[in-house]
């Protein structure tokens, strides 16, 4: 049996395991079953016990590493150093890592790639295990949708090791029938990375599903007309259990926060339903959302590019449609 697969659990500001970590664990478990590899979870945090227990719902073994310095140091370097130490301390070094493709996972992946001298496959939308092919040994096959989903690709590692970054919302997290066990570990340092001081943590976002993890996104663009227009979209998002998104035009106008921006220099999302209001559908926006399962667009302009790839295109004045839709959804909810 070759080296195992490690899932590094991602911990949020409140110390809880993020949703994508359960998805990564589920995907890794399927890989491990198909490839005959052990799958182990790792959580590095100031207080790792809670998140480690959450990850153990999905994996037979989870290693919990206490790292007090994460209280006031940026996470990536602390976590990377502990993972490398842990990998050196275990009997068989891990062959593959599965991490979240969110910003924290990317930071960690870049550091682990450099420390372990292994490759990275980013933005995975699906994972399978396959037999050796021309240029690659038996191992993970990573599905990706580059260029905003205009191409579907399958890639592998040319060696026996690698790091995979899984996009949120690609896999349904499935817990084990019996939760696994949590082992506390305190690996000695083997690398010394410069740490970055955290002077202050400013909390401004209201709770709710993050835009990358939401099943429904209600997005607004220039056609929304101003910050007040987004109040109606927030109500719709609330009624649909979704999150609010925006085009760059709306963010640039200062109507809504950058954290909601979808597209080339914002986030890439793949919700079940994408409801776009007053979003023209320019290429910069399209690349961030065109792989949504269902796209519904409302715009006054019959020539808006979004009409060319929306599954339902309603040509209407959204100022009147938004409250009418909210009323219809409230009536359905009873």
């Amino acid at each position: 049996m070759g080296g195992g697969i490690w899932v590094v659990g991602e911990v949020d500001a409140a110390g809880a395991l993020t949703k994508v970590s359960g998805e990564a664990a589920t995907a890794a478990r399927a890989l491990g079953d198909a490839g005959g590899r052990e799958v182990t979870g790792v959580v590095v945090a100031v207080e790792p016990d809670g998140a480690a227990a959450s990850l153990a719902a999905f994996l037979p073994t989870v290693l919990a590493v206490r790292a007090a310095e994460m209280a006031d140091r940026a996470a990536a370097a602390v976590v990377a150093a502990r993972i490398v130490a842990l990998a050196a301390a275990v009997q068989e070094r891990p062959a593959y890592f599965v991490l979240s493709a969110k910003p924290d996972g990317r930071d960690l992946a870049g550091m682990l790639s450099a420390l372990l001298e292994i490759g990275v496959l980013v933005n995975a939308t699906g994972l399978t295990w396959d037999a050796a092919a021309d240029s690659v040994p038996a191992g993970p096959r990573v599905e990706m949708q580059p260029f905003g989903g205009r191409v579907l690709t399958s890639s592998g590692f040319t060696g026996e090791r690698g790091i995979i970054l899984l996009r949120p919302n690609m896999v349904t997290a499935e817990p084990l029938a019996q939760p696994g066990s949590v082992e506390e570990c305190a690996p000695g340092e083997v690398v010394d990375l410069p740490l970055v001081r955290v002077i202050e943590r400013v909390i401004t976002e209201s709770p709710g599903p993050s835009i990358e993890e939401a099943r429904v996104i209600v997005a607004g663009g220039r056609g929304v007309g101003g910050p007040d227009g987004f109040a109606g979209l927030r109500e719709l998002a609330g009624l649909l259990g979704g999150a609010v998104g925006a085009s760059r035009a709306a963010v640039d106008a200062g109507w809504i926060d950058y954290a909601t921006q979808i597209g080339q220099t914002g986030k890439t999302v793949k919700p079940a339903v994408y409801l776009a209001f007053g979003v023209s559908g320019a290429i910069q926006h399209k690349v961030g959302m065109q792989t949504a399962e269902t796209i519904i667009a409302v715009d006054r302009d019959p020539d808006a590019p979004i009409g060319e790839f929306a599954d339902l295109f309603v040509i209407a004045d959204l100022a009147a449609v938004v409250p009418a839709l909210a009323a219809a959804l409230r009536a359905r909810a009873g």
Partner: peptide, 28 residues
């Protein structure tokens, strides 16, 4: 360290449904 093994075009979305100039309740 990585190799592209296969690439294909996604299935086309199919042409969407268009609703022109409905009143707000019909749109909803």
């Amino acid at each position: 360290t990585t190799a592209l093994l296969a690439a294909r075009q996604p299935a086309p979305r199919g042409s969407g449904r268009v609703v022109r100039d409905p009143d707000p309740v019909a749109a909803a």
